[in-house]
Simulated assay, not measured.
Amino acid sequence: MKTLYSAKVTTEGGRKGRTTSDDGILDLQLSMPKSLGGEGGEHTNPEQLFAAGYSACFGSALEMIAKNANVDLGDYSVTVKIDLEQNDDKEMDLSAVIDVYIPEIEVEKGEDLINEAHEVCPYSRATRDNIDVTLNLLIDED
Score class of each variant (00 low, 15 high):
57 C>W: 09
122 P>E: 09
18 R>H: 15
39 E>D: 13
95 S>W: 09
73 L>M: 02
12 E>R: 11
97 V>Q: 10
80 V>K: 03
75 D>E: 14
140 D>G: 04
118 H>T: 03
61 A>I: 08
40 G>A: 02
22 D>H: 09
110 G>E: 06
74 G>V: 04
111 E>M: 12
76 Y>I: 01
96 A>E: 07
115 N>P: 01
89 D>E: 15
51 A>Y: 12
28 L>K: 10
45 N>D: 12
78 V>E: 10
108 E>L: 08
80 V>F: 03
87 N>W: 07
50 F>N: 04
104 E>P: 00
52 A>P: 00
32 M>I: 02
7 A>K: 00
35 S>K: 03
112 D>L: 11
74 G>T: 02
92 M>T: 09
7 A>C: 04
121 C>A: 05
115 N>G: 03
123 Y>H: 08
116 E>Q: 15
75 D>S: 12
90 K>N: 15
28 L>M: 15
93 D>K: 13
99 D>H: 12
16 K>G: 10
94 L>M: 12
102 I>K: 07
5 Y>E: 04
120 V>M: 12
46 P>R: 04
127 T>S: 14
58 F>G: 03
111 E>C: 02
85 E>S: 06
5 Y>F: 14
51 A>M: 08
91 E>Y: 06
49 L>A: 04
125 R>W: 00
45 N>W: 07
57 C>H: 06
5 Y>I: 04
37 G>R: 01
60 S>G: 13
110 G>P: 06
97 V>D: 13
39 E>S: 11
9 V>W: 06
130 N>H: 11
121 C>I: 05
94 L>F: 15
118 H>F: 04
120 V>N: 03
139 I>W: 01
2 K>R: 11
24 G>V: 01
47 E>L: 08
45 N>P: 02
13 G>N: 10
9 V>Y: 05
67 K>C: 00
74 G>N: 10
62 L>Q: 08
61 A>E: 13
81 K>R: 12
121 C>E: 10
96 A>D: 08
20 T>M: 14
26 L>M: 15
